[in-house]
């Protein structure tokens, strides 16, 4: 995923800060990665490289660790985060088909973020409302019985919202869509 303007400096500063505050040992790698991800929202390649350098372990080992645990993500969270449930109940009624529909509509694979960073797509296991299966969580809002037709509806709504937001907002790269979502 290519970095956006100013992001490189932000990543470097953030990794530097985390490395400065922690013991730089192999045993401490997971907390280091967690803290960096907490600050950046994901683990960009550049951050993994800098952590590897700082702790003096091969970069491929950082990559191995980050890909082993589900809690780490290598792609930035999209403006809209869609999580498709593939827990047993949802899977049984076609959660995988729902996921595929999103993949097609967003033109990305599960675990990825669209190049414009508008959408990211993930899979989750049981959201806790199996009676609504197949379940999808869109920006923390639970959507039930999401068939491929519903996927179209959800995408339409999201795109409309983006269109409005783009029209209202002059090109301004400030943060602010990260907090306060309902």
């Amino acid at each position: 995923m290519s970095l956006i303007e100013g992001e490189k400096e932000h990543i470097l500063a953030c990794v530097k800060e985390v490395l400065g505050e922690n013991t730089k040992t192999r045993e401490n790698l997971i907390p280091l990665l967690q803290q960096v991800q907490h600050k950046l929202g994901y683990l960009p390649s550049l951050a993994m490289e800098k952590i590897a350098e700082g702790v003096n372990v091969p970069t491929v080992d950082i990559y191995g660790l980050a890909t082993f645990y589900n809690q780490f993500r290598m792609n930035p969270p999209g403006k809209h985060q869609v999580k498709v449930c593939l827990g047993t109940a949802c899977y049984m009624v076609g959660g995988d088909i729902t996921l595929e529909s999103f993949e097609r509509r967003m033109e990305i694979k599960e675990g990825e973020t669209s190049p414009d960073r508008l959408f990211s797509l993930e899979r989750v296991a049981c959201v806790g409302c199996c009676t609504l299966a197949p379940v999808v969580v869109v920006d923390d809002k639970v959507e039930g019985k999401v068939t491929p037709t519903r996927v179209d509806g959800i995408m339409l709504a999201l795109n409309e919202e983006n269109g409005k937001a783009a029209a209202e907002q002059k090109p301004d790269q400030s943060e602010g869509d990260d907090n306060g979502h309902s």
Binding site: P58, V60, Y63, G64, Y69
Partner: peptide, 8 residues
């Protein structure tokens, strides 16, 4: 130090 394991 090029090769390693990844994923689970």
């Amino acid at each position: 130090w090029i090769f390693g394991f990844a994923n689970r």
